[in-house]
Design a protein around this nucleic acid. Structure first.
Ligand SMILES: NC(=O)c1ccc[n+]([C@@H]2O[C@H](COP(=O)([O-])OP(=O)(O)OC[C@H]3O[C@@H](n4cnc5c(N)ncnc54)[C@H](O)[C@@H]3O)[C@@H](O)[C@H]2O)c1
Ligand SMILES: NC(=O)c1ccc[n+]([C@@H]2O[C@H](COP(=O)([O-])OP(=O)(O)OC[C@H]3O[C@@H](n4cnc5c(N)ncnc54)[C@H](O)[C@@H]3O)[C@@H](O)[C@H]2O)c1
Lengths: 211, 211
DNA sequence: TTTGCCCTGTTAATTAAATAACAAATTATG
DNA sequence: CATAATTTGTTATTTAATTAACAGGGCAAA
């Protein structure tokens, strides 16, 4: 798959591909071999057209009569969104949330593996959580470079997020997922995704509220 | 603020209002009284135009020379996104994630209060977590109606999400925030927001990957 | 007073995303 | 063989969201 094509895939499509794959994996486990666009659509909150459009963008062709070959499609999506040898992930802030995430990811086999946690609290540094070692932030640069970690998740308190992100960038991180409520700055060549739970909940509350 | 106007506010603007408010609260605590649109923009990842446009939509006018009055703006955003008497929230699935969320929200003073958790495991039912009682799912309908809870967060395992959402809707919930990886169906009059951490992380990984 | 600067508020233009529309392909069936 | 029923792949249209453009106001300094 060539560079230009990949740049043309919308962000939203990338997200949906990830979701399609999960749904497809379930179907595959159930022994299904083929699936129609409208079936995929029904598993998500989207339309069949959207599915076909997304698959068009990645250049996958289905069988006109049987639909899409589930196994092939799972593989193709893997080729697009995964790295062949997997990618390592580190978590910054091994508090309640950081530990919940660690546990959550440790089970699933995937191309993404959490290999290290970083914290400053003596409670956490030196411990292991579900097999993931927790190091002091002072060691971050060293270990990130040594392990070749390129992706990091921020779960430090909001007032520590900016400096944590800075340290991550300096250590060579190329992708950051920030779960703290404080937006952080990164250079252009670093991909940043931020999600704030309070904002989501307030949004739900807004639409529930009787105006 | 009238009904029609509220319907015209884009979803994204509602989210940003929530974020503006958080940033403004910090500024307010620091003793700042006024702020310019470009200052607000710098605190988020957006442009000053976007800020002004959002504030235009909610009908707030700033001072041409001094910018926006922080206190007034916080209040106005509150009038729009909060309910005057607050809203109650319940968590479904008091596992690692559900408990982390409970702890997270228990500290902050806000118009949103988590008042109940629901689970099926004898480990959790009957216990309290940071003061939030955990009930058995069988009691959900009763307690939800009794307490007037309208908002629920799904943190049960993926394969339980669909039936949990169904139970929530039947109990009269009007807003659902689904953190399980499985999309759920709700009637039109129920607001649904879904967020999947794995998808987010895979997206970051995709843009980090060397194509 | 007048000039210049830096704001806001709003309309216009652009871009991104989703949806609709439909031709072409394939199979089943009369 | 012709026809009807489906479903894909793709282009065209619509809608949503963002960004650009700019008029108008008010203060400061000349
Ligand atoms: N708990 C949740 O459910 C939840 C949900 C959404 C967002 N968050 C956000 O995630 C973050 C963490 O939340 P939490 O509930 O786990 O809090 P927590 O206090 O339990 O954990 C924070 C951890 O970060 C560590 N830390 C502090 N400063 C650090 C630094 N400079 N470098 C490295 N580590 C540092 C602390 O020692 C602690 O272990 C917060 O920003 C919070 O807003 C939490
Ligand atoms: N842990 C995380 O960091 C994390 C992050 C993102 C998403 N999630 C999602 O959140 C959900 C929970 O994750 P977790 O790590 O807390 O898992 P967990 O197993 O620790 O917790 C799940 C809880 O749900 C309860 N439960 C099971 N079936 C139920 C039912 N029918 N009704 C009510 N309660 C029921 C279980 O007893 C358990 O307490 C999963 O869907 C997971 O994908 C978790």
């Amino acid at each position: 798959m060539d560079q230009d094509l990949i740049k043309k895939i919308p962000h939203k499509t990338i997200q949906r591909l990830s979701q399609y794959r999960r749904a497809l994996l379930l179907c595959f486990e159930q022994g299904k071999t083929h699936i129609f666009s409208h079936e995929i659509a029904n598993l998500q909150h989207i339309t069949a057209v959207q599915v076909r459009r997304d698959l068009m963008l990645i250049g996958y062709s289905g069988n006109l009569r049987k639909g899409y070959n589930i196994k092939d499609l799972i593989e193709l999506i893997g080729k697009i969104i995964d790295s062949p040898n997997g990618q390592k992930v580190a978590i910054f802030g091994m508090g309640n949330f950081g530990r919940a995430i660690s546990k959550y990811f440790s089970g699933r086999r995937s191309k993404l593996t959490i290999v290290a946690g970083f914290d400053v609290s003596p409670d956490k540094v030196g411990k292991e959580i579900v097999g993931i070692p927790c190091y002091h932030m002072d060691k971050a640069r060293e270990i990130i470079l040594q392990e070749g970690i390129k992706i990091g998740i921020i779960t430090v308190p909001g007032d520590q997020a900016v400096e944590t992100a800075k340290a991550m960038v300096e250590a060579g991180m190329k992708g950051i997922l920030n779960y703290s409520p404080t937006p952080v700055e990164v250079p252009e060549n670093v991909f940043l995704e931020e999600y704030d739970m309070v904002t989501s909940l307030e949004k739900v509350a807004f639409y529930v509220k009787e105006h």
